[in-house]
């Protein structure tokens, strides 16, 4: 017999396998442990203190700026992201590969460098800032700067989630031809036939971009002034609290940010389940 027979252990060990154990261990150490540690640290405060710190007017305004600017950035990036993905998939043009690679620049660039670049071109004397200044629009060191930075860093998400789905659709040009043969013009075909199957990918990209923007620190800390009630975002507030040796303040606000992220991730998962409903 060239076969080696192994008897399977009973009970819990029956489910034991190396890939499974390594996965669990890795995710436990890298993801779960730090999260739990932060929550545990916040838990050393009394509930009343936690509530007071979490709902401090400066903190609340920081959440509002964070969520508001992140939503605005994700909303702007969604239609543009779909458009860019569309062009990258459907329009063969010289240099397409270069443009395609360029889309990942916000992933690759250190966020502080991104902040510095944006602060430079949007300053009153910068290329774009000098054009906006006469109109009375100040970007650097205002909430608009925060918005611009968040648009920049969350730009790739919708593109990268929509692109593969569009690419797959390329193999079935008949779907759109069928719509045309049934009397639909080009816009009707787009809105009713092409776009709906893209929606799960678009929403996933939107949610990923949004959650990335909520956590952004490096570029915002450079382009914004960090003044409460003006352009102070929650991640910068955490940093400011740490600089003031206010560890409990930093921790509690950190936990609030974690909760926001978890809610968004749950949303992404629900979107993906919904996207698979017609199998």
């Amino acid at each position: 017999m060239g076969l080696t027979l192994t008897t399977r252990p009973a009970g819990l060990l029956r489910h034991f396998s190396w890939p499974w154990a390594v996965t669990l261990g890795y995710l436990g150490v890298m993801l779960l442990l730090p999260t739990l540690a932060l929550i545990a640290k916040a838990g050393t405060e009394t509930p009343a203190d936690i509530w007071r710190i979490a709902t401090d007017p400066v903190a609340v305004s920081a959440y509002q700026v964070t969520v508001g600017a992140s939503l605005a950035a994700a909303l702007v990036n969604t239609p543009f992201g779909v458009l860019v993905a569309w062009v990258l998939v459907r329009y063969p043009f010289p240099g397409r590969r270069v443009v395609d690679a360029l889309v990942d620049l916000p992933f690759a660039l250190p966020t502080s460098v991104a902040g510095l670049t944006l602060a430079t071109i949007y300053s009153d004397t910068g290329w774009l800032g000098s054009l906006l200044a006469p109109l009375g629009i100040k970007v650097s060191f205002t909430v608009y700067g925060v918005f611009v930075a968040l648009v920049f860093i969350s730009l790739p998400f919708v593109i990268r989630t929509v692109q593969p789905v569009l690419q797959e659709m390329q193999s079935e040009p008949e779907i759109e031809e069928a719509a045309r043969s049934l009397g639909a013009n080009a816009p009707q075909t787009f809105w009713r036939v092409t776009l709906p199957p893209l929606m799960p990918a678009i929403l996933t990209g939107f949610a990923l971009g949004f959650s990335r923007a909520v956590g952004e620190f490096g570029s915002v800390v450079i382009i914004a002034s960090g003044i409460p009630y003006k352009d102070l975002v929650a991640p910068v507030l955490v940093f400011q609290r740490l600089e003031q040796y206010d560890y409990s303040g930093a921790t509690v606000i950190g936990v609030v940010l974690i909760l926001i992220s978890l809610v968004v991730l749950l949303g992404i998962n629900l979107i993906q389940v919904w996207g698979k409903r017609y199998g």
Binding site: E174, E177, R180, S181, L182, G183, N185
Partner: peptide, 10 residues
Amino acid sequence: VQDRNIGFVF
């Protein structure tokens, strides 16, 4: 195509 009132099966 859309104005021809045809039925097309792929």
